[in-house]
């Protein structure tokens, strides 16, 4: 192993751990909140089962606003909110708050788009069979849109990794922050390159896994 990696291995492992925490929380937020939010966006659209112009407009606006913020500004803008729920605006735990919020907005949009790809007729057939809204969502929409939902989550996770790299501004740590502070600011270009390589491997693995799973579950 190159000397520079041996020398910094404690810090490297710690930053990988921080990245995992930040991305992990983002993924959980995306699934637990982004998936229902995206489903609601879809269902409240014109012509859909829970059509409601007011609900759709409000949800749509919120998602757009969050997504149109340059992420760095969103982090800064959310500092009072972060302090309110975590107790501090500094550190890895605090960094998960803006990440979770962008994750929800990001994935909900991709969920909405995947659901829009489900043929209307499938929903119509489900309703004609006496399916409730819950049945339509879980037994028809998610089944038919599942490969799109997986691909969307894959794309989202890769974005979350990218977002997590700038969390150094609030002391969030992570591989990106480590690469900047040790590699770039201390002119250890070699170390920075290794960090980029680590991220590249992660992204490749995630994309490969996502694409493979999506292909295997797609029977359309």
């Amino acid at each position: 192993m190159p000397d520079v990696l041996v020398q910094y291995q404690t810090e490297i492992w710690r930053s990988i751990g921080e990245t995992f925490i930040m991305v992990g929380v983002s993924i959980i937020a995306a699934i637990l909140v982004g998936l229902p939010l995206g489903t609601w966006l879809y269902l409240s659209r014109k012509g859909q089962l829970l059509e409601n112009r007011a609900v759709f407009s409000v949800l749509n606006l919120i998602v757009n606003i969050v997504r149109s913020f340059p992420f760095l500004l969103l982090v800064v803008f959310l500092i009072p909110f972060t302090r309110l729920i975590i107790g501090t605006a500094i550190g890895t735990a605090a960094a998960t708050v803006p990440l979770a919020i962008i994750a929800i907005a990001h994935y909900s949009r991709l969920v909405e788009q995947s659901l829009l790809d489900v043929p209307r007729g499938v929903v119509e057939a489900a309703v004609s069979m006496g399916a409730s809204i819950k049945d339509v969502i879980f037994k028809f929409l998610y089944v038919e849109a599942r490969s799109g939902l997986v691909l969307g989550l894959t794309t989202s996770i890769i974005s979350f990794i990218s977002y997590s790299t700038i969390m150094g501004v609030v002391g969030g740590g992570g591989i990106g922050d480590f690469a900047i502070r040790y590699g770039y600011q201390q002119f250890k270009t070699e170390l920075m390159m290794y960090m980029i390589l680590i991220m590249l491997v992660f992204v490749q693995m995630i994309q490969f896994t996502g694409t493979t799973v999506a292909r295997l579950i797609d029977k359309r």
């Binding site: 119509e124 069979m129 006496g130 409730s132 089944v143 038919e144 579950i217 797609d218 029977k219 359309r220």
Partner: peptide, 20 residues
Amino acid sequence: REKRHVIGMIFQQFNLVANK
């Protein structure tokens, strides 16, 4: 919904769930 269980319907585009 209960009544719809005994009213079958078929469509021009079949509308089967392709992933089932």
